[in-house]
Design a binder for these strands. Structure first.
Lengths: 153, 153
DNA sequence: GATTAATAGTTGCATCTGCAACCAAGTCAA
DNA sequence: TTGACTTGGTTGCAGATGCAACTATTAATC
């Protein structure tokens, strides 16, 4: 059947990238301008802020960020004194990562802004579309997680 | 009202990135393994394949890829003999880019695979969700395009 | 207990990218 | 025509990233 020439503009990975990049870039300005943070750093911070102290490995599992990226983000956040490491009592290899008071403050502020950004975007989308989007994206994510090995950032 | 701590896992830009990255990475394997192409190169090729000869600037407009990226992708595709440049008769600065026979062949093959990939993904998503996704993503893209300046890749 | 395999995390290196600065050609206006 | 400005495209440089290789510790197997 369908033998029309391929149109990138209808290609789901492409559309997803466009949307993802557009929104991420837009919000990136917030943490970049204020704290010189990178996208990965923001995500690591956000996960620690939301879920509390944990190891780098846990962050990888939860957020599907590659361990190299996490490692470097942690190092950067540490030198910014937003995060502290403590040796794990159970596992000599692992380190327990937690936010410092400063890290918590930054998370509180950025988290608030992120919520506002998100709410605004959903409002603009309208209830119809906003209601569907989460389920669809989560479904895509798990589908690919089953199919391919690593989903990364 | 809502004063719960921010959860990254519900943040639209984050979800979009996860889904985008997961799907793109999955398909990336195809053109990377076969032709050592980069994501940007694939997209430039796909646009030229779909819309025919045009200038780099046109590609930027259509696909929202940054001009630096396009420039380098074009150079790479040229050395791979998938693309040829011709001086524009109308504008001495511009070059008309077009796919070579090889470029067309590669586009035909990858385009077919992309269509299959896309169809498969949509099938897995189910008609309910698949029907909505395009409209939502396009809406997000235009919303951000209005808001922010550049949406890039 | 010794050896082997697996795992937490870091680092080197080779890209890929973004931004600003740049060149060359076109536009506009006096 | 000349000079100021815009625009198509490239390049330098400073990050950010992915992958493979590496260290150190833990688990497994004999």
């Amino acid at each position: 059947m369908a033998d029309k020439t391929f149109d990138l503009q209808d290609f789901l990975p492409y559309l997803l990238n466009q949307a993802a990049e557009a929104t991420s870039r837009s919000f990136e300005g917030v943490y970049k301008a204020r704290y010189g943070m990178t996208r990965t750093q923001w995500r690591v911070l956000a996960n620690l802020g939301r879920f509390g102290a944990m190891t780098a490995r846990d962050i990888c599992r939860i957020s599907h960020i590659e361990k190299t990226k996490v490692s470097r983000a942690v190092a950067a956040l540490e030198t910014e004194v937003m995060l502290a490491r403590a040796p794990s009592p159970e596992d000599g290899r692992a380190e327990i990562l937690s936010l410092t008071p400063r890290g918590l403050a930054v998370f509180a502020e950025l988290g608030e802004r992120a919520q506002a950004f998100d709410a605004d975007l959903r409002a603009k989308l309208g209830p119809e579309l906003a209601a569907r989007i989460d389920a669809i994206l989560r479904e895509i994510i798990v589908l690919q997680a089953d199919a391919g090995p690593e989903g990364d950032d």
